[in-house]
């Protein structure tokens, strides 16, 4: 995938900020999503109950709600990491239900970026190697990879001397930044972040979120993150609140 086209596309989006959902082809279109788990006693647990959710390109959206309300489930379904019990998920025009495991993997590689709560990195790779992981899988040549990673690290304020350290030698905040760098560096259409700041102290978390919003504004990459941290919700431009597996509020802000 050429870096060029993404940059130009995102640039055009970045100028006018988020658009209302109506009147534009949505990036994410989840329809009547139901996810029922079996718990340990084989009792069915409904994690998502007939959820309709759409997101337009360029959004910076927080999905909030109490623990167990279905945030992670929703993000996993959108990311194609899990299959819904019923309902459909279409991302970037592609119906995820129709794809094989291999196709899903390739789809994720080329379209999505993931940031999880913690332990995002591969322990045997250095910070730099972790950050360029997706580029490596895409087969981007070495000098391009290096350039892009260095730029991303600078952007995220990751110290140069950290780049050859392995994750075990990095703090939690540093690890999360490297994870963000990895998610961003391949310029995906959509970044899914499940409680990215939950393991960080509030100051570090706030700084990280400002960085993400900043990136969203510059590159136009869509961010969808879950949280139950009010400080994080404040920074979102759209706030979706889940309760008991259903969307309780959907609030678009400036």
């Amino acid at each position: 995938m050429s870096d060029h086209s993404i940059e130009s596309r995102s640039a055009s989006l970045a100028t006018d900020g988020p658009k209302p959902i109506d009147g534009q082809a949505p990036l994410v279109e989840a329809t009547r999503l139901v996810k029922i788990y079996q718990d340990k006693e084989h009792v069915p647990v409904t994690a998502l109950n007939e959820v309709d959710f759409r997101a337009a390109p360029g959004e910076f959206t927080a999905i909030a709600g109490p623990s167990g309300s279905g945030k992670t489930t929703l993000l996993n379904l959108i990311g194609g990491l899990d299959k819904p019990t019923s309902g459909s998920v279409v991302v970037a025009g592609q119906d995820l239900a129709a794809m094989s495991r291999n196709q899903l993997a390739t789809f994720r590689l080329n379209n999505l970026g993931f940031i999880f709560q913690a332990y995002n990195l591969i322990p045997v790779l250095t910070a730099e190697e972790n950050a360029e992981f997706n580029l490596l899988l895409q087969g981007v040549p070495a000098h391009e990879r290096h350039e892009q990673v260095v730029r991303e690290f600078e952007d995220l304020g990751i110290d140069k001397e950290l780049i050859h350290r392995r994750p075990a030698k990095l703090s939690g905040g540093q690890q999360q930044r490297v994870a963000i760098a990895r998610a961003l560096v391949s310029r995906p259409k959509l970044i899914l972040a499940d409680e990215p700041t939950a393991n960080l102290d509030s100051k570090t978390g706030a700084r990280l979120l400002d960085k993400m919003r900043n990136l969203n504004e510059r590159t136009g990459i869509t961010f969808l993150f879950s949280t139950h941290d009010p400080m994080v919700m404040e920074r979102a431009r759209r706030l979706v609140i889940l309760r008991d597996g259903q969307i309780a509020e959907d609030d678009v802000r400036g």
């Binding site: 291999n102 789809f107 332990y119 322990p123 992981f133 997706n134 899988l137």
Partner: peptide
Amino acid sequence: IREIGIMSANGVRPG
């Protein structure tokens, strides 16, 4: 198991 999951999420195919 966890890092295999991370790799898989990032687009590493089962093969």
